[in-house]
Computed example of a mutant assay.
Amino acid sequence: MKTRVLSATLAAALSLSLLVAQPATAITVFDPSNFVQNTLTAVRTLEQINNQINQLQNEAQMLMNQARNLASLDFNIVNRLRTTLANTERLIGEAQGLAYDVQTMDATFSRLYPEQYAATISGNRMAQDARERWQNTLNSLHTAMRMQAQVSQNLIQDESALADLVSQSQSATGALQAQQVTNQLLALQAKQSIQAQQLQITQDRAASLELARQAAATERAREVRRRFLGTGTPYTPQTVNFYNH
């Protein structure tokens, strides 16, 4: 629109300049068709220039958008997630009783929770094993409760991390920053999933050890009863006379 107004103004100015009285010696021949053609050529030239300017502006804006999309996010919560996750891992490492190592656990479990006691196992040994089984159950319950307390504390830090990530997401200026925020949100979700699995492991372990303790206690009671009754000749009732009656 600006180009058309400018062209019309230019054409009007040229027309008025031709209408001004001039000396007889300076009078030139006016060709209307040539004048119109020149005016249209000037208008088209101005339109092409404006189009080129608009194209350059669009390309500059595109470059600015690409620069924003490639801008990296100066924010990272990975170390915070690792710290909170390390707290729960430390509690598992400090767990007493049966080890979490498979081979070590198998050997200890076979000794403390036998399917059947051998005749060579003394009563004192069985009593000591029962005490150790009870201690393992108590330790596993303690570990599960410590894990619950630690997870509860970690949730406070997770809420803070989530609030920071949401703030960074809302202020992201480009696609790369938005993607990086999304990746860190996924990392937070994965960390919470691992933490939930750790908590579930400790709780299930406590329940399993209690069930194993009950089964071992049943076997110990059976063995003690068998030894008390003995394996000799069955008892035969006999008549006993008191005072010759």
Rank of each mutant, 00 (worst) to 15 (best):
M1E: 02
K2Q: 05
T3D: 10
R4L: 05
V5D: 14
V5H: 09
L6F: 03
T9A: 09
L10I: 00
A12Q: 02
A12L: 06
A13I: 03
A13C: 00
S15W: 05
L16F: 07
L18R: 02
A21Q: 00
P23N: 03
A26F: 05
T28H: 03
V29F: 13
V29R: 11
S33L: 15
S33T: 14
V36Y: 04
Q37I: 01
A42E: 06
A42T: 07
R44P: 01
R44F: 03
Q48M: 06
I49K: 12
N54Y: 03
N54P: 01
Q55E: 09
Q57C: 03
Q57P: 04
E59K: 12
A60R: 13
A60N: 12
A60M: 09
L63K: 11
M64E: 15
A67P: 12
N69A: 14
N69V: 07
A71T: 12
D74E: 04
F75L: 04
V78D: 02
R80L: 00
R80M: 00
L81G: 03
T83R: 14
T83H: 10
A86M: 10
I92N: 05
E94R: 05
A95C: 03
G97D: 03
A99N: 02
D101I: 01
A107R: 02
S110Q: 04
Y113M: 14
Q116H: 02
Y117N: 09
Y117V: 04
A118F: 03
A119D: 07
S122D: 02
G123R: 12
G123D: 14
N124R: 07
D129N: 13
R133N: 12
Q135V: 12
N136C: 04
T137V: 14
T137H: 01
N139T: 01
N139P: 00
S140Y: 04
L141S: 06
L141Y: 02
Q148W: 14
Q148R: 12
A149S: 14
Q150E: 15
V151H: 11
S160N: 13
A163C: 06
D164R: 13
V166Y: 09
A172H: 05
A172F: 08
T173W: 02
T173E: 11
A175Q: 13
A178P: 02
Q179E: 15
V181Y: 13
V181T: 10
N183G: 11
Q184R: 07
L186K: 12
A187G: 03
Q189A: 09
A190W: 00
S193R: 07
I194W: 04
I194G: 06
Q195A: 11
Q195M: 06
L199G: 11
Q200K: 14
S208Y: 13
L209E: 14
E210Y: 14
A212S: 15
A212I: 09
R213P: 06
R213F: 14
A216K: 10
T218K: 15
A221K: 14
R222E: 06
E223P: 01
R227D: 05
L229V: 10
G232S: 04
G232V: 06
P234K: 08
T236Q: 13
T236F: 06
P237M: 14
N244Y: 11
